[in-house]
């Protein structure tokens, strides 16, 4: 047996420890320029924002304004510190930092649009959608429903506010009759204030005669 290698082997950890001790007092900058250094510095906690695809698959953007600059993020996975500087983040860190928040995300709300034959009578097709809306509501915890009535620009502004409310109320009654029970149910009228198709005043436009329902 050769007795020599043993002290050498022991020497390596000793050098590494000496290196660690030396580095312990150094700034992060020193770590970056330390070529032979095998010990990664502990990552400093960073406040940051990361863009991810929306539930519908689209990618939007966020503008991050901080005291060190401004970042415009518009690519999936792109991140920035809250001071306004670029930041790199991998899936593992995203899961570690945001796994709990992601799990708590509510179900994506669903919208329906119902059409009217005349007055406050739904088209046959829209009438047939009602059971589907009730079924969707039943799948959700403490479901909130907003029912908004709209009109075209025929008739007066005041008349249309009332007509919109009549449409929304009728739809609400039908949904309740079909078993809708909501934590919160809001029945509103926008009258002719939010046209789906822009028209001049006093214009017949069936596409504007509608009720919009948000199930959350």
């Amino acid at each position: 047996m050769n007795p020599r290698p043993a002290p050498l082997r022991r020497a390596r950890p000793a050098i590494a420890i000496a290196g660690l001790l030396l580095l312990a007092g150094c700034s992060n900058k020193y770590y970056v320029s330390c070529a032979g250094c095998r010990v990664a510095p502990p990552p400093a906690p960073v406040s940051y924002v990361v863009l991810i695809p929306s539930p519908d698959g689209s990618i939007g953007a966020v503008a991050v304004k901080g005291d060190k600059g401004e970042q415009f993020l518009n690519k999936a996975g792109q991140a920035g510190t809250l001071e306004g500087q670029p930041f790199q983040v991998d899936d593992k860190k995203i899961e570690q930092d945001f796994g709990a928040a992601r799990t708590a995300l509510p179900q994506v709300p669903v919208r329906y649009q119902l059409a009217f034959k005349d007055g406050a009578t739904l088209t046959a097709e829209s009438e047939a959608t009602l059971p589907e809306i009730v079924a969707e509501a039943k799948k959700r915890p403490a479901v909130d429903v907003t029912i908004i009535g709209h009109t075209d620009t025929l008739q007066s502004f005041e008349y249309n506010d009332k007509l919109g409310l009549k449409r929304a109320t009728k739809v609400a009654d039908s949904l309740r009759a079909k078993g809708l029970v909501a934590n919160s149910l809001s029945v509103e009228s926008y009258g002719e204030r939010q046209l789906l198709v822009q028209t001049p005043d006093n214009t017949f436009e069936p596409r504007n005669r509608r009720v919009e329902i948000s199930v959350r």
């Binding site: 960073v46 924002v49 995203i94």
Partner: peptide
């Protein structure tokens, strides 16, 4: 708003962490 700045939201999903 965050303790160090502001995020302007332009139609999207994002994750935000404040240490």
């Amino acid at each position: 708003g965050t303790p160090t700045g502001t995020i302007g939201v332009r139609g999207t999903q994002f994750l935000l962490k404040v240490e």
